[in-house]
Design a protein around this nucleic acid. Structure first.
Lengths: 205, 205
DNA sequence: TATGAACATGAGGGTTTCCTCAAGTTTGTG
DNA sequence: CACAAACTTGAGGAAACCCTCATGTTCATA
């Protein structure tokens, strides 16, 4: 998987490199299935390795997440690139959302990561948000084309990710395309024609 | 609070009745603050009572929830009644949603209950859904008036509750009216004029 | 006010996860 | 092959939460 080299560190012994790769594979699977707080013992067991070995390679849970999440998150880059390449800014915008939520639906760990990203360590968090660099442009392009409502901002997309994460969690087992229906409703409110001014009334009581 | 009588059971001794009430008050507070899986020890401590006493009165966590949630959920009845009393069906519909989400935002336990309601015991669950009896009518009235899109169903409201629960959880501390902004966007997609047919394409791949 | 039934108490056993570390094993090199 | 460094192992301590039960206390009644 990584050929036995840890990034900037000294080369690993051959058995250690093998174990590290087995751990990464197992962790990728288990985290996708069970979510971000799957017991580390499950991962070690699936890798065919003791819990001590897991801690040798990844002294903390976040070290392990840091070795896995950025890679998984990289899929977002392609999706964002495709969105920006779409000649239709609105289609690019909606395509990006569909791609993003499909990822979340396929990977419980990723779904968790996208909602908890601010409570993760800074480096992990930043690696996770790298995929969001293009988001501003995707949004801006759709707004400038007069298709996306003018008051929609990047922060609103974060809110939508939160919302979707829960919809996906709750419906995945029983009705896995619930999130698509929900997104469809939501998008109908994001079109420029549908926009009504947001009431910022100080709440009645 | 309840005058020392358990519902259909034999009268409690005076000290027992006092402790039961203290437990209910404490549980209401703690669950609202910390959510549905707050440690039972916290509740006992806040009530000034030992953990054993808590178990004397409520042999299981769900017994305790069953004594608290339905009462909290009853607030929904008033909100629903007000919605149905509103001469404007759309205003009734949106007012109901605002009331519902305000409740969720004020009570972490209620927020949890509304998302996990299907994994709770049947009686608790049913008590919780009693407040939703009027929902069908609220929706139907807004649809019939041609204000709410025709393809919106009660199940979609459940999805919205899921979505909102997470928005509320994530934003409560830092930006507590995020959910209002989100709702505003969503409602713009629920108006009949905004509705576009839901694509039920078998996903591309 | 004495007595038994009702009730309260909290130490302690069980579970699940976390993480460590002393002892044993494997690998690469001379 | 021998040896030191690198690595692995799993038993076990710590923490958080669950729930029980033997013991002690309080209430209600005569």
């Amino acid at each position: 998987m990584m050929g036995g080299m840890a990034a900037g560190s000294k080369p690993l012994r051959s058995d250690a490199a093998r174990n590290r790769d087995k751990l990464l594979v197992a962790a990728t699977q288990v985290l996708a299935e069970r979510g971000l707080d799957a017991p580390l013992e499950h991962i070690a067991r699936r890798a065919g390795v003791s819990i001590g070995t897991l801690y040798n390679h990844f002294p903390t849970r976040e070290a392990l997440l840091g070795a896995i999440l950025p890679q998984r998150m990289a899929a977002l880059d392609e999706i964002a690139a495709a969105a920006l390449a779409d000649p239709d800014p609105w289609a690019g915008f909606t395509g990006f959302l569909e791609g993003l939520f499909t990822l979340q639906a396929e990977d419980h760990g990723l779904n968790d990561a996208l909602t908890q990203s601010f409570s993760l360590a800074t480096d992990v968090s930043q690696a996770c948000h790298r995929g969001f660099l293009d988001v501003e442009r995707i949004i801006e392009r759709a707004r400038a084309a007069g298709r996306l409502r003018a008051d929609f901002e990047a922060g609103d997309l974060v809110t939508l990710v939160w919302a979707m994460s829960q919809v996906i969690r709750e419906s995945m087992e029983t009705a896995p395309d619930t999130w698509r229906r929900f997104l469809s409703f939501f998008l109908d409110g994001l079109r420029a024609e549908a926009a009504r001014p947001i009431p910022h009334d100080h709440p009645v009581r």
